[in-house]
């Protein structure tokens, strides 16, 4: 059941990315290009998303458990450290270079176009590189 509901949420998310044109890197770069021919559309994607998610989450906070899982896994971290800022900055540079962030990068593969595929495979390589690095760090502290 958890898989089916995740699939439904994923489909909704994918339709939203396509309708808003987040899957078009030129649209994304047009938003980030404040010195050029600025296209403010993506600011409204954020506004539209938060306008639904903010009240939605506020209502869910009052509930005890989700419909098909044991518990709500709300993020608990509130610390603002160097890692957060460094990671966000590295992500931002990558986003600005290609015009893809993770969701749109994956979703746009369905258009049968090489760019999102190259981007996503490289992103997964980045995930793996970081995963191996962290495991190596953990092993060296344990030993």
């Amino acid at each position: 059941m958890k898989s089916i509901t995740a699939l439904i949420a994923g489909i909704l998310f994918g339709v939203g990315l396509a309708v808003s044109q987040m899957i078009n890197p030129l649209k994304v770069l047009g938003f980030l290009d404040v010195l050029g021919h600025w296209d403010p559309s993506l600011a409204l994607v954020m506004v539209g998303a938060i306008a639904v998610t903010l009240p939605g989450f506020a209502l869910l906070r009052r509930r005890e458990k989700p419909l098909v899982a044991d518990r709500f896994q709300w993020p608990t971290r509130t610390d603002i450290d160097g890692r957060l800022v460094l990671g966000a900055a590295v992500f931002g540079i990558g986003w600005g270079l290609g015009g893809f962030c993770p969701g749109p990068g994956i979703a746009a593969i369905s258009l049968g176009w090489h760019e999102p595929l190259v981007f996503t495979l490289s992103m997964v390589a980045g995930f793996i590189a970081w995963h191996l690095y962290e495991r190596g760090m953990a092993a060296s502290t344990d030993g």
Binding site: A18, Q21, D39, S41, L44, V45, P66
Partner: peptide, 28 residues
């Protein structure tokens, strides 16, 4: 160059928001 598309941006954004609420409401 792309043009400002406020309506599709808002609708698409709202769908993304709905997906986020759905995943939390259903799967937590």
């Amino acid at each position: 160059m792309t043009e400002f598309t406020p309506v599709s941006a808002l609708i698409g954004g709202a769908l993304i928001g709905l997906a986020a609420v759905a995943l939390m409401a259903l799967n937590g």
